[in-house]
Design a binder for these strands. Structure first.
Lengths: 203, 203
DNA sequence: AAAATATTTAATCATTTGATTAAATATTTT
DNA sequence: AAAATATTTAATCAAATGATTAAATATTTT
């Protein structure tokens, strides 16, 4: 068998296809993406895509799992860090999200709209609730402010951080050029945690 | 000519198709929506859809314009009301948005993802910036807090109000049942303005 | 080098899907 | 009522698109 070489090429070609699929799916969404677009983006033949991934749907599932993890994977480790304060967690999450989203601005709108199209896809929904309610973050929050519903607090944090990217296609032309948009997002790295602390201390 | 009757039937059948298109497009997005889905939803023949609207694209443009207006049309009148204070505007906008979005939860994700697919569609982008910067709201805000960038403030307001709906497919299973979700959104009608006032007074 | 296996391609298929056509039916006008 | 016009349908078309096949090329193993 040609395993050694195969493994290398797999990593190269298969990864190239996945990368291309990620780009095209994220930009256009599942329904608007053509397998031929993906093949072209990857610089390979259309049949090769089906050779490696069997079908558009299968390829999409793989890309989607990666993207979901990219979007929400940041949260787990930070929320469960025993060694940081609540305030530090706010700063960490904000910094991570804004940095990541400046590189992948259309990630949130892609993931959220695809989940809307296929809600069952989000299989670990029970896990998520459990992990969240048992997280260090929620414990710290409830200790500090038993009167605040932690979900409200989280929605605010995520809303302030993710919304400017979800709405980027609308906001960007209003705000001005790309550079101005970027500047504002950079400012929010300090501002969002500060605003969240206001809610934490006096909300 | 059969004008009188035609006008009536137009309103009935044409409106029925538009309504069906709005439902199907909003639920599935342009690329995933089939004209046959829309025809079935409207209870009419496929050819009739093209008879009235010439093409899927044309029908979509009409629906899209309506949906954009529904999503952002609330803002204009409230932001430019000379007779209300800044605080009252925060309350008005929040109340309007949450009420509207409880009825049309998938409106934001639809509009935002379609605009991502076709950014040129948002033709009045210059108008928007001008209208916004010259609004009563912005004037009031800059008078009160010349140190706060009004765009940050607006992003926070919209983020807190819209994000829970944009992310509903993810949040809802985590929060619990539909009723729990609804309760939390009802609570936010009071909470969001209160949080925004914190930012306004001490941010 | 030869055989075996893996990779890649061009050509093609079958289905889906947006759109059209021609005919039938309903409605309005004269 | 008859003619004219508008509305609706069934059948069909043509293009787009996901997928397959069979053959060619490259790589690995023996």
């Amino acid at each position: 068998m040609a395993k050694a070489k195969k493994a290398e090429l797999d990593l190269s070609t298969e990864e190239k296809i996945k990368e291309a699929a990620s780009i095209v799916f994220t930009k256009k969404g599942y329904g608007n993406a053509r397998t031929r677009d993906i093949a072209e983006e990857a610089g390979i033949n259309l049949a090769l895509l089906n050779y490696y991934f069997r079908s558009k749907e299968k390829l999409f599932q793989i890309v989607m799992a990666e993207r979901i993890d990219k979007l929400f994977g940041v949260l787990g480790p930070v929320l469960n860090d025993e060694s940081t304060t609540l305030e530090e967690k706010l700063e960490k999450i904000t910094e991570s999200y804004i940095n990541m989203l400046l590189e992948h601005p259309d990630l949130p709108i892609f993931v959220l709209s695809e989940i809307r199209n296929n809600p069952e896809q989000l299989s670990n929904r029970f896990q998520a609730r459990k992990h969240l309610t048992e997280s260090v973050f929620i414990k710290q929050l409830m200790t500090r402010r038993s009167d605040i519903n932690p979900f409200h607090f989280l929605m605010n944090l995520l809303g302030m951080n993710l919304f400017p990217f979800v709405a980027k296609p609308v906001l960007q032309p209003i705000l001005g050029n790309e550079e101005m948009y970027r500047q504002l997002m950079e400012q929010r790295k300090k501002l969002v945690p500060a605003w969240m602390k206001l809610i934490l201390d006096q909300g």
